[in-house]
């Protein structure tokens, strides 16, 4: 009997290994970084060391705020290692969803069965969304668990908002990769575009924060849209959440449109 969302369930179940691997990576990163806060971020020695660093460098790394628990979590986990892992996961999934599938010759046979191309893109995008949400939920729970023991002092509501932005930011790279893959039928273009969104966003933020002359770069940085106001400390900018999710939705729609209009597997 026809099951509902066959492509979605397949995409989700087929990728449990990779989802598990990224979950383990995020868990390891959180377990390594956050418990160190009392001895690193919160210590006066560390503050002196950071004060001794060139201010441009501390700004680029967001280390200007690591003296507080939320600032430390924002800078190390959400701003750096977590961002890196989550973006890589999302870009990998996004690039594989259509471009990779087509390149490996699998998409042709799928499309010969009783599915529409729009359905293929939408169901697989949904699978990326769900996997991203699973990883984000894991991060939320782990940070919450460590909040007390690591003396982070993070407000739960702010953490929720930050995790939402964390997921939305990764989703943006993932959907950009999905779109480029669906447009070109090549995995490598998907990876390139997805990675460019993540890396340029990070670089524009790091450079834009250096001086008022290059401040305009911040406007081009999804990273800055999400993290510009340090959501772990101050709560989410809901406009940014909405904006990021809307762009992702638009990229998915464009990906579906692009695939709908072209030859597959040539």
């Amino acid at each position: 009997m026809p099951r509902p969302l066959p492509l979605f369930t397949k995409a989700l179940t087929d990728s449990w290994r990779s989802t598990l691997a990224w979950a383990l990576g995020l868990t390891a990163a959180i377990m390594l970084y956050l418990p160190l806060y009392p001895s690193i971020g919160g210590s006066s020695q560390m503050q002196q060391m950071i004060d001794a660093l060139p201010p441009g460098m501390t700004k680029a790394l967001n280390y200007d705020q690591i003296a507080t628990g939320p600032g430390y979590t924002q800078a190390t986990l959400f701003g750096l290692i977590g961002f890196l892992l989550m973006s890589m996961a999302a870009v990998g999934w996004g690039a594989a969803a259509v471009g990779g599938d087509e390149e490996s010759g699998l998409l042709e046979l799928t499309l010969a069965h009783s599915v529409t191309r729009v359905q293929v893109v939408l169901e697989r995008a949904l699978a990326i969304l769900v996997r991203t949400a699973i990883l984000a939920a894991l991060v939320f729970v782990l940070v919450l668990v460590l909040n007390g023991p690591a003396q982070l002092g993070i407000d739960v509501g702010h953490l929720f908002g930050a995790v939402l932005l964390f997921a939305a930011l990764a989703l943006l790279s993932g959907t950009a990769a999905l779109f480029a893959g669906a447009l070109t039928g090549r995995k490598v273009y998907g990876v390139a575009v997805g990675a460019a969104v993540a890396v340029l966003g990070y670089v524009f933020n790091a450079v834009g924060r250096q001086s008022t002359n290059v401040e305009w770069l911040l406007n081009l940085s999804p990273y800055h849209w999400a993290y510009g106001n340090s959501p772990v400390a101050n709560g989410a900018d809901w406009g940014a959440v909405t904006g990021l999710l809307c762009i992702s939705a638009a990229l998915i729609a464009l990906g579906a449109l692009a695939l709908q209009r072209r030859d597959v597997g040539v």
Binding site: D14, S104, L106, L109, A112, H113, S114, V115, T116
Partner: peptide
């Protein structure tokens, strides 16, 4: 659309299958 392809069985010339299944 989909109803037509349900009535067709297709074998591609270059058959690619997933590995881990």
């Amino acid at each position: 659309g989909t109803e037509l392809r349900r009535r067709i069985g297709y074998l591609p010339g270059e058959l690619h299958l997933e590995n881990r299944t």
